[in-house]
């Protein structure tokens, strides 16, 4: 694939998003390099989830441009589905297909989008379930397994498509505390594999350990972009300081 911008996986320029009168994203510029892990933190309503969902066009930007591996994304573009197939997404509420077993959840897109036959798709799916440690749950329905297992299945579903990029939208926010670790462990595994990831999370410990860079967002703007060490220990902006002090108080 041609990539005129060197190794930029994502390039976002002057991105704006309005919901009615509310400006959720305010002139966001951002690049993510191949193989890097970017963590986005910020108070709720700061636009971090909206930014993430704009990257694969689940939200349509009001204006601005997004390039994925050099290709400009656009709504109603036939290529959009191809690009989406290369971008894995993990949701806060897991969003496993409720009518399908864990195994079929993973094979569905392989069969429908990538036109892989069922047998091969099931082999791929089992390998991914093995990786996230729930191969024994392959034939369970989503509601029959725990939240942590559901989220791991959702990660396996995204990974099975062999994505170039993984997006995580608060993957542990809907989980009971004792299940957060099992999901973060799987994500750490992916970090070690060198998959490019953009993660919205409130898990500051994970951000510190996994991120190559951390972004702090507030009121739809990127307030600060820093290394994890820099952002958590010597934040440049007062808003970042205030946010971090509130987070630390709560923990």
């Amino acid at each position: 694939m041609t990539n005129p911008n060197g190794n930029h996986m994502i390039e976002i320029k002057n991105l704006n998003k309005w919901f009615g009168d509310l400006q959720a994203l305010n002139n966001v510029n951002l690049t993510v390099q191949q193989g890097k892990v970017l963590v986005i933190v910020g108070p709720s309503g700061s636009g971090k989830s909206t930014l993430l969902r704009c990257i694969n066009y689940l939200e349509t930007p009001s204006n601005g441009e997004i390039r994925f591996m050099g290709n400009l994304l656009a709504e109603n573009d036939d290529n959009l589905n191809c690009h989406r197939a290369e971008i894995g997404m993990v949701f806060q509420d897991f969003n496993l297909y409720a009518h399908l077993s864990v195994l079929d959840n993973i094979t569905l897109a392989l069969r429908v989008v990538k036109k892989i036959d069922r047998k091969t798709a099931e082999d791929i799916a089992m390998a991914q379930l093995e990786k996230v440690g729930i191969a024994d749950k392959a034939n369970k329905m989503p509601l029959q397994i725990s939240g942590g297992q559901q989220q791991r299945a959702a990660i396996a579903r995204a990974l099975a498509m062999q994505p170039q990029l993984m997006l995580f939208d608060e993957p542990t926010s809907a989980l009971d505390p004792e299940m957060i670790k099992e999901v973060l462990d799987v994500m750490m595994l992916l970090v070690e594999e060198g998959i490019t990831m953009v993660i919205v999370t409130h898990e500051m410990g994970f951000a510190r350990a996994a991120a190559d860079e951390v972004i702090f967002m507030d009121y739809g703007c990127i307030v600060e972009r820093n290394t994890p060490h820099g952002l958590f220990n010597k934040p440049k902006s007062d808003r970042t300081k205030l946010f971090l002090s509130q987070i630390l108080q709560n923990n």
Binding site: N56, L58, N81, C82, H83, R84, A85, E86, I87, G88, M89, F91, D93, N95, L96, Y97, A98, L108, A109, V112, V113, A154, R157, A158, M161
Partner: peptide, 18 residues
């Protein structure tokens, strides 16, 4: 049906019809 189901399917590259 929860909108998340459609979003998950679209995020995997399925068309609206699929």
């Amino acid at each position: 049906i929860h909108p998340g189901q459609m979003q998950a399917a679209r995020s995997q590259g399925m068309s609206y019809g699929q």
